[in-house]
Design a protein around this nucleic acid. Sequence first.
DNA 1: TGTGCTGGTTACGATCAGGAACCGGAAGAG
DNA 2: CTCTTCCGGTTCCTGATCGTAACCAGCACA
Lengths: 126, 126
Amino acid sequence: MDVSTLPPPVTHESDTCAVVRAILARVGDKWSILIVRMLGDGSMRFSELRRSIEGISQRMLTLTLRNLERDGLVERTVTPTTPPRVDYELTDLGRSLQSITEAFGRWAVTHRDQIENARIRFDARQ
Amino acid sequence: MDVSTLPPPVTHESDTCAVVRAILARVGDKWSILIVRMLGDGSMRFSELRRSIEGISQRMLTLTLRNLERDGLVERTVTPTTPPRVDYELTDLGRSLQSITEAFGRWAVTHRDQIENARIRFDARQ
DNA sequence: TGTGCTGGTTACGATCAGGAACCGGAAGAG
DNA sequence: CTCTTCCGGTTCCTGATCGTAACCAGCACA
């Protein structure tokens, strides 16, 4: 996710479809929503995030945080101590997304069994 | 040094984390949310969907619909006429996701300018 | 002297999303 | 009887994205 190779800016057509697509391209990747959810409880250090998001690699955490920062959803604060300390927290814009990620998390937990069962049934039918 | 001294505590957070990741892997792709939003207004034919979701290829529409069907979010109905007619509509499970996709759509439309501006500012800073 | 923690970056390979083009059947158009 | 169109879907191939592993600099601690 090199910043210089990111997709082109959103056009100014008022097509909801296109807007949703553009935002999804930013926030619909593998880790963004998870990070936003994590930061919902308050600011966190880099390594704290790394430990609490199971399975994320250092590289992907860096890249995803950089993108979220670029999009104004997350703020990065460096404290030049030794060892250095870098904190990330949601901006107002990031917090405005929280209710959605919360809702999504609740939906996921509530319906995961139904999805799992549907998948098993579908695969059995083939 | 003994490395095994820090067992990753299986908290409620990390559980939710795994579930969210699993559901995101299904529904967080480029087109699923858009299709669910489209079908929110009622059942639609394949080609109807293709025309109304700007930019989707036939292949991705087929694949995404197949996955949504597999996960029990969408129901597929074939009417063997000539030309064949295939209708797709949301299941109850699919409809339960609607409020979230609606909210996401609204959020995307409302905040896209803020994201766009943040991105421009960030890029200018580099 | 060397090992660990901090927050990264770089190199590289595998995987998989996604677009272009194609398919086969039927019904018009001419 | 060809030529095109519409239908839903599939095959092929490229290039973006993700992940692993290694490396970096600065400082503390032993």
